[in-house]
Simulated assay, not measured.
Amino acid sequence: MKQYLLSVVEPSTGEPPAAEEMERIMARVAELERAVKEAGVWVFNGGLHQPGTATTLRPKGDDVLITDGPYAEGKEHLGGFLILRCEDLDEALEWARRAVAATTLPIEVRPFR
Rank of each mutant, 00 (worst) to 15 (best):
P111I: 08
E23R: 12
L82Q: 02
M26W: 04
K2W: 12
L82H: 06
L65T: 08
G80Y: 02
A39T: 05
D68H: 10
G14H: 10
P17Q: 10
L93K: 06
K37M: 09
P59A: 13
L93M: 14
D90S: 13
A39V: 08
P17G: 12
K60Y: 14
G79N: 03
V100S: 05
A102T: 10
L32M: 08
E23T: 15
R97N: 14
T55G: 11
E23W: 10
R110N: 06
M26Q: 11
A39I: 06
V64P: 04
A72S: 13
T104L: 05
T104F: 04
L5R: 01
L32A: 04
E10F: 12
G46F: 11
V43Y: 07
E76H: 08
E15Y: 05
T56N: 08
V8D: 01
L89Y: 04
A54S: 13
A30C: 05
G40Q: 01
D62L: 10
L32K: 00
D90T: 15
A99Q: 06
L89C: 04
E23G: 08
T13M: 14
Y71C: 10
C86V: 09
A101T: 11
A96Y: 00
E38Y: 07
T55D: 10
K2N: 12
L82R: 00
P17F: 13
R113W: 15
E76P: 04
A27I: 03
R97C: 15
L48F: 01
P106F: 09
P70Y: 09
A39F: 04
L6W: 12
L105R: 12
A30W: 12
W42R: 00
E76K: 04
R97S: 15
E31Q: 11
